[in-house]
C-alpha cells in the first residue's frame, strides 16, 4: 500500500482527558476504496478516535486525513469529508427545504437533486419544519444529506440509530450500490455489527483505547476459524488453545486463531466466525490475558 493512496493515516494517536488516557498511541491506515468497521464496547474510544479524525478535538500524534491535519484544517478537510455523529441532530428551526438550500449554498460538493431523490423514497415533505419530524425521519433526512455529498471519506458513527429495520437495510444497500466507489472510503461504527458485516472490507476492533485487531475481511476469514466441536474431539481441540469457547444448544463452539484448516476439520464443522462472535472472542481473550498478567504480578 502506497502512502499516497491512504485517505486516513493515524500514527501514535493519543488522547487524554485530564489524567485519563482514552487513546493509547493507536495506529491505523484507511486506504482508498475500502469500507472499514470500527467496533468496540461503549467507552472503548471509537468516538474519540473519530472525533480526532474529523478535527473536532485536539490530540497528540500524527493524523492525516486526505493529506491534511484535521485539527488545523477542518473546514478545508470537510470539503471532501462527510460525517454523521451518533449524537448529532439537525437544526430544528429550519424547514426541510431551507436546510437543503443552506447546505447547497455552503457545500460545493452537495447535490441537492440527489438528496431529494433519496428523500422521495420516504415520507418527508419539503415544506415541513424539521422539529415536526420524528426521530427516524430526522435520521433519514440527515443520511440523505450526507449521501448527497460527493465526499472522499464518509464517517458514520451509529448512522442508523433510531431507524427501523426496513430503512436500515435500504440505507446500507444504497450505501454500497449507489455511494461507494473505488475513490471513496467509508468508516462505520455501529453496535448492530451483524447488519454491516456483509459491507465491510476491513475491520478494526478497539478496546480500552487500544487497537486489538486491524485486518481485512479476507485475512480474518483465513486467520480465524470457528468450529462446532464434536463431543469426542473436545479435549483434543482444547489442546490447540482456542481463543474463545462457548456452548450453543449443548454443543461446544470454539474459535481459533491461526489453526490449520486440515487440523480444524478433524474437530467438527468449521466456519468463519461472525464479526460479533469474533468481537466477543477477542474481547474475552484480552480479559483473560489481563487476568493472567494480574495473577502473574500477584505471584
Amino acid at each position: 500500500m502506497q502512502t499516497n493512496d491512504a485517505i486516513v493515516e493515524v500514527k501514535g494517536l493519543v488522547k487524554n482527558y485530564g489524567k485519563k488516557q482514552v487513546l493509547h498511541s493507536i495506529d491505523f491506515t484507511i486506504p482508498r476504496g475500502r469500507i472499514y468497521g470500527l467496533i468496540g464496547h461503549n467507552g472503548a474510544g471509537k468516538t474519540t478516535a473519530i472525533n480526532a479524525l474529523l478535527g473536532l478535538i485536539s490530540y497528540e500524534g500524527d493524523v492525516k486525513v486526505l493529506g491534511l491535519n484535521p485539527f488545523t484544517n477542518r473546514s478545508k478537510m470537510m470539503l471532501d469529508t462527510a460525517f454523521i455523529s451518533d449524537v448529532a441532530s439537525l437544526p430544528r428551526f429550519l424547514k426541510v427545504t431551507e436546510l437543503l438550500s443552506l447546505v447547497e449554498d455552503i457545500h460545493p460538493n452537495f447535490n441537492r437533486q440527489k438528496a431529494e431523490q433519496i428523500l422521495a423514497d420516504g415520507d418527508i415533505r419539503d415544506n415541513v419544519k424539521i422539529k415536526s419530524l420524528s426521530k427516524g425521519m430526522m435520521a433519514q433526512l440527515h443520511l440523505a444529506i450526507v449521501m448527497a455529498i460527493d465526499a472522499k471519506l464518509l464517517v458514520l458513527d451509529e448512522p442508523t440509530l433510531g431507524l427501523d429495520i426496513t430503512f436500515r437495510k435500504k440505507f446500507y444497500r444504497r450505501l454500497v450500490e449507489d455511494y461507494m466507489s473505488e475513490n471513496r472510503s467509508i468508516l462505520i461504527t455501529t453496535h448492530q455489527v451483524d447488519e454491516i458485516e456483509h459491507l465491510l472490507t476491513d475491520l478494526i476492533f478497539i478496546r480500552d483505547g487500544r487497537i486489538v485487531l486491524d485486518a481485512n475481511m479476507d485475512d480474518i476469514s483465513n486467520r480465524y476459524i470457528q468450529i462446532l466441536v464434536a463431543p469426542e474431539a473436545k479435549q483434543e481441540a482444547m489442546a490447540h488453545n482456542p481463543i474463545f469457547t462457548t456452548k450453543q444448544m449443548g454443543q461446544d463452539i470454539m474459535i481459533f486463531d491461526d489453526l490449520e484448516e486440515e487440523i480444524a476439520k478433524a474437530f467438527g464443522i468449521i466456519s468463519t466466525p461472525s464479526i460479533s462472535d469474533l468481537f466477543v472472542a477477542l474481547m474475552e481473550k484480552k480479559d483473560a490475558s489481563q487476568k493472567a498478567a494480574t495473577m502473574g504480578a500477584a505471584k
Binding site: 474529523l54 473536532l56 477542518r74 473546514s75 478545508k76 478537510m77 470537510m78 470539503l79 462527510a82 460525517f83 454523521i84 455523529s85 449524537v87 448529532a88 441532530s89 439537525l90 437544526p91 430544528r92 447546505v103 455552503i106 457545500h107 460545493p108 422539529k131 440527515h142 450526507v146
Partner: peptide, 17 residues
C-alpha cells in the same frame, strides 16, 4: 445557538470554520 438541539456537530460537518 448552534449548540441548540444537539445540532453543533451538524454545523461542524459543513466546510465552514
Amino acid at each position: 445557538s448552534d449548540r441548540k438541539d444537539n445540532a453543533l456537530l451538524f454545523w461542524k460537518s459543513l466546510p465552514v470554520s
